[in-house]
Amino acid sequence: MLSSIRTLWLTFLHLFHRSETVEYPEQMPYLAPRYRGRIVLSRDPDGAERCVSCYLCAVACPVSCISLQKTEDAGRWYPAYFRINFSRCIFCGFCEEACPTYAIQLTPDFEMSEYERHNLVYEKEDLLISGTGKYPEYSFYNVSGLAIPGKDKGEAEHERPPVDPRTLLP
């Protein structure tokens, strides 16, 4: 009983405390660079799409809101389409965690309300940005063993030139 009364009193005293409310939108909140907001697809330092359509983001997504289809062009893997249904997205960032190529990144932007639900379905064109996002140096194909135009077998980082299977020399 006494504790109830004490609670009442302490709660009453909050009438004279400062409000914690941030007056958004007049006053913008601080968003950390790793804030988990709108998802983007970034590009390599040389401007090519980073996404290799490995499906890991899709399978990591707890609400299954990512769908894509792999296609291939001269040895490079691309998504033929890449769709995120933001009306389902919970911004958990698992897709970013799962992405082996730093392609999918969450950004400090959450202002994406729409009056029509289908406007929340973002296709690849809506998701692609022109830059590298948070990881300016990384290029997946520089460390992968796949040959792509301009980088043949054995030309990636930490690779020896292709072996000659016809030699028996040690």
Binding site: T11, F12, H14, L15, H17, R18, S19, E20, T21
Partner: peptide
């Protein structure tokens, strides 16, 4: 409003 004040909101 009162609930707001008592919870340090507006």
């Amino acid at each position: 409003r009162l609930l707001g004040f008592w919870q340090d909101r507006r």
